[in-house]
Design a protein around this nucleic acid. Structure first.
Lengths: 338, 338
DNA sequence: TTGTATGCGTTATCAT
DNA sequence: ATGATAACGCATACAA
């Protein structure tokens, strides 16, 4: 391990001069800086992050906290898309990422503790249940945080535009002639609230009456609960002609249930998903869905988190809305040509 | 931040005693240890990883290096499955994970440099192209490494049993009456070599002759190239009755091509995938495939990597083979009842 | 503009 | 069994 001391010896400047030069300090003469940087490069110098971190209390490390209730981990395509994009942007900005979780070894610790333990300069939080006290503790701590899809006071939020998403879907379905639209929603989170609001707003605007029994609760990313909800909807005396699902993945549960009823999509029943995961585009019929821009979500999250770290004194929390895109597939029957 | 010093003051023992007690050193009396650990807990002490790492040259941090040529990142379900399982086991053993990559900020560094920079105690490597010199450099360095699906001398390898996988698929296809089996394979890696070997061995054993034009090269996780290969196969004067794909994901390219030819799976053409990703099970017809045990792969990788770190002196590199499982779907037509 | 000295929090060596 | 002290590599306050 070549250290600042080694460089210092090699080129005859003191360690502090070397240190300053390597940090592009303006105190040091240009020529000196050049020499020092050159020898550092030649010697293959790498800063010792531990020493630097000990001294500066910064780690160039960003924490990533994500938990979904289904424990899908990285196989949750929406989250993994966001995280991957977050990682790319974080690395571009000079940060590594560390996953934050409860238990490390036999140490039980809170998310906050883990973040402190790893000296994360900031943490991005994406999860379904933002009411978890451990999550709240972290958000209200002195550690800069950015949330995905949830608004906290004094914390920047990167938000997928769920209101518009739900609206756009309803409008699309309406344009195809449907008037009996059911909505299976996920856990009662702010995401769900906004989607429900978008759904009802659009229905109101279009003059569609939605019977209470057309609104069913299920869970995100859980085909089973969406399957059950689907069954209830199909068994209704006056069933809907189109079902909106919590997400593309959950729709699979509905799909199986629809198959069991010997119904065909979209001829007997229309459906739409949400997310625009890869799967949605290779199913037959292709699923109509609302594509969330995971790439932009992750990138913005990293950019704002880093900004809030660097400009800690002046940074003001923001809410960044990320637009999505309606993807029209073949899962909604066009009733206009009947 | 509560430090050892704070604990030392509070309970009247020296910092070194406290340090030893917290590390369960046998030098310290049981009673003393108990007192110290209790106050540490009360005060909410968390070790400072930077200081510890600076002193011990260990970080309790494992590097994860994964690169696929298609840049799919975490959306590559096979890798993300392995990594997620790796992460879970690593955390259980007291390690955090850090992603290793080339550029961090404006620093260009090799994978090895990055691993050193982050003081990784060990690195797990999963990628398509193990011939990359930067990967080889890391593997041959003093940093303990474990590879996934590739064997290097003096480096533990966790290997999915691709030979058996290909064999099992061929046998299944054969049992369903097929004799004209084509194989679209991925890049020329050791994984591909083993699958090809398994394919040919099985065909030989079953007395199947495989014309050269039934073997097509494509790329893993790349629907486009598999689509092209599929087209070539379908346009053959004597086309195969069953096509084996590099992986489930790539199969989608073949599926589209088959659709374009107005052929139906499995009535006109049978297919099998590889991997057993979620997608394969919700396609209609359900894809017959070989499920790789990503969970076991990740877990074993973490366990062996940690073992090689802890028992650095005595550890001997191993090769761990992980069995998979044939998943029979509906994508291979049973010709026996024709 | 450059150099000297100090301390971040921890562990390890050595002495008691 | 416990304590004093040094050192890990770096950044910085201060001196020159």
């Amino acid at each position: 391990m070549v250290t600042i001391k080694d460089i210092s010896k090699r080129c005859g400047f003191s360690t502090s001069t070397v240190s300053k030069a390597l940090n592009n300090s303006l105190e040091i003469g240009q020529e000196t800086t050049a020499i020092i940087r050159k020898t550092a490069l030649e010697m293959g110098y790498l800063p010792n992050t531990a020493a630097r971190s000990l001294k500066t209390n910064r780690s160039n490390n960003l924490g990533v906290l994500f938990i979904d209730e289904m424990q899908s981990g990285l196989s949750h395509e929406y989250f993994s898309g966001v995280i991957n994009s977050f990682k790319v942007e974080a690395e571009r900005l000079g940060y590594d990422i560390t996953f934050i979780s409860h238990n490390i070894g036999n140490m039980q610790m809170s998310y906050y503790d883990h973040s402190v333990y790893r000296k994360c300069d900031g943490v991005v939080i994406a999860c379904v249940d933002f009411s978890d006290p451990a999550v709240v503790e972290l958000i209200h701590s002195e550690i800069p945080t950015v949330t995905i899809d949830h608004i906290f006071n004094d914390c920047t939020a990167i938000l997928s535009d769920n209101l518009t998403g739900a609206k756009d879907l309803v409008h699309h379905i309406y344009e195809y002639g449907h008037r009996k639209i059911a909505f299976i929603h996920g856990e009662n989170t702010s995401v769900t609230k906004r989607r429900l609001a978008g759904f009802h707003k659009a229905c109101d605007a279009l003059g569609i009456k939605v019977p209470d029994e057309y609104i069913k609760a299920a869970r995100y990313h859980d085909p089973r609960s969406s399957g059950l909800a689907t069954r209830e909807l199909l068994n209704l005396p006056d069933p809907p002609t189109c079902i909106m699902y919590p997400d593309d993945f959950s729709f699979i549960g509905g799909m199986n249930e629809i198959e069991k009823h010997s119904l065909t999509i979209p001829d007997d029943i229309s459906v739409v998903g949400y997310d625009g995961i890869y799967l949605s585009q290779v199913l037959r019929p292709k699923l109509s869905t609302f594509k969330q821009n995971t790439e932009a979500l992750g990138k913005e999250a990293a950019a704002h988190l880093v900004e809030s770290i660097v400009d800690k004194k002046t940074y003001l929390p923001k809410q960044i809305w990320i637009a999505g895109e309606l993807w029209i597939g073949d899962s909604v029957k066009n009733l206009n040509f009947e």
